[in-house]
Design a protein around this nucleic acid. Structure first.
Lengths: 168, 168
DNA sequence: TTAAACTTTCAAAATATTTTGAAAGTTTAA
DNA sequence: TTAAACTTTCAAAATATTTTGAAAGTTTAA
């Protein structure tokens, strides 16, 4: 396979995976493009490579910066801004986990905590089922939360090393 | 908080979480409704509770069955079909992990394997960066894949117990 | 100051996804 | 067989999301 074709496939695959994981397709594609670029790119180059508009490129890059996946760079003597993606996969995984936890898991945990406090008649099947489902899901969500927390603080080797020790 | 209000909130929260995780909102809401129902419900009751159309209810229920989260039940002497959700959160988590792995992770792993085989000039920065990113992501994805595999085979207590032993 | 070189915004258009509901299909009892 | 009681399908409508591109805004050098 040609390098150029391989690059296109990578951008496509990453874009698809992104869209299945709540990151929009273009955002994931811009990220993919930067991941395989040795040098930081300008908005212009990104627009060109992916055939997207200036507005889209601008907003997408700001989102990626917001997710902590991309940073702005300035070159001496130039007005243009350059964009560079962190290429450490462990950092990428951690950043994504961190953002999604904050944006999605935390608000749900808050609601579940409230809902598991709702009182009711213990002889009412409706209440009993509601309460059991809510408390069970709450427990699971808290476990996930704690695991993510540990992962966020951990070093890559330590994390996977420990996971593997357990999983043999 | 009233039970009725709590139920509404739960359905809303689960629906939102679902839509952030690639399961459509209505599907997640139907699932939530069934999770807090002690008895299996009919299509009619689901349509009514959530104010959705017959077609939507039917397709959504079939999807939920396809994800292994809901099952059809028949009551003796009745023509109607009843739908019941598995209430074991560990099973739910495993089912979802299993389906998403199959639908999303596996295809990407296949592409990454191919892409990491692409040959090129080792003095070319373009090639070097491409190759490093692809192989790194491939390694991470394989780790995730293996961990999911273990999780799918594990018992709940064993899984979380082990995770906790490590994470102290 | 000014104007060139850039970035950002946002309403409108394009696209993608979801939902509806009527028509078609299926099953069962008699 | 038939017809009532149900389920399924799918084109069209509704809704949600994404993208465009021109206009407005900002920064810098001179």
């Amino acid at each position: 396979m040609e390098l150029a074709e391989a690059k296109r496939k990578f951008i496509e695959a990453w874009g698809k995976l992104g869209s299945e994981w709540g990151i929009n397709r273009t955002m994931a594609q811009v990220h993919a493009l930067l991941l395989i670029s040795p040098e930081a790119l300008t908005t212009e180059e990104i627009m060109e490579s992916l055939s997207i508009s200036r507005g889209n490129a601008n907003m997408t890059l700001r989102d990626l910066i917001g997710w902590g996946l991309v940073e702005k760079q300035h070159k001496a003597g130039e007005r243009k801004e350059y964009f560079y993606a962190d290429k450490d996969t462990w950092n990428i995984a951690r950043q994504v986990a961190k953002e999604r936890r904050k944006r999605e898991l935390d608000p749900v945990l808050k609601i579940l905590d409230e809902l598991s406090k709702v009182e009711g008649n213990k002889n009412d099947a409706e209440y009993k089922t509601f309460n059991k489902s809510v408390t069970d899901i709450n427990k699971l969500a808290k476990n996930v939360d704690k695991t993510l927390d540990t992962m966020l603080k951990a070093e890559e080797n330590w994390f996977w090393g420990s996971i593997f020790k357990i999983f043999k």
